[in-house]
């Protein structure tokens, strides 16, 4: 008993293949959350530099929008936001103790709806390119 084997922190995430729906929902919610708060800071920073005058503002926005990569990143941002919203609603219901038996199904539903909305919005985002 003098010694014991500590399998270390790898335990937590080394077993991702064995994660269940609720754990994936948590991982994705955290990930999308980080992206969104990161985007909020960037968003305010970009607008702050752009706000110095009309030409600057219109130039910055149209300059960014003329890059194809930005258009695709916007689709990604939409997907991230939609998932965070839908899974967030799921979590709010969980907090209220409603529909706990359907927590895995509602996670899968969030994923499917997110995918559908993201794909469906591609024409809009690439429109006028």
């Amino acid at each position: 008993m003098s010694q014991s084997y500590d399998r270390g922190h790898i335990e937590s995430f080394g077993r991702w293949t064995e994660f269940s729906a609720g754990m994936w929902a948590w991982v994705l919610h955290k990930f999308t959350g980080w992206v969104l708060i990161g985007y909020l800071f960037t968003h305010i920073a970009v607008l702050s530099t752009a706000i110095q005058g009309e030409t600057m503002y219109n130039g910055t926005l149209q300059g960014l929008e003329s890059l194809l990569i930005v258009r695709f990143m916007e689709v990604g941002l939409l997907a991230v936001a939609v998932f965070h919203i839908l899974n967030g609603l799921r979590l709010l219901f969980v907090d209220l103790g409603l529909g706990l038996d359907a927590q895995d199904k509602s996670f899968y539903a969030s994923l499917v709806v997110t995918g559908a909305i993201a794909i469906g919005s591609i024409p809009t985002f690439l429109g006028g390119f």
């Binding site: 269940s20 609720g22 754990m23 948590w26 979590l91 907090d95 706990l100 927590q103």
Partner: peptide
């Protein structure tokens, strides 16, 4: 608690 439902599972 992060409501991952692992324990309940």
């Amino acid at each position: 608690c992060q409501t991952q439902f692992s324990c309940t599972d």
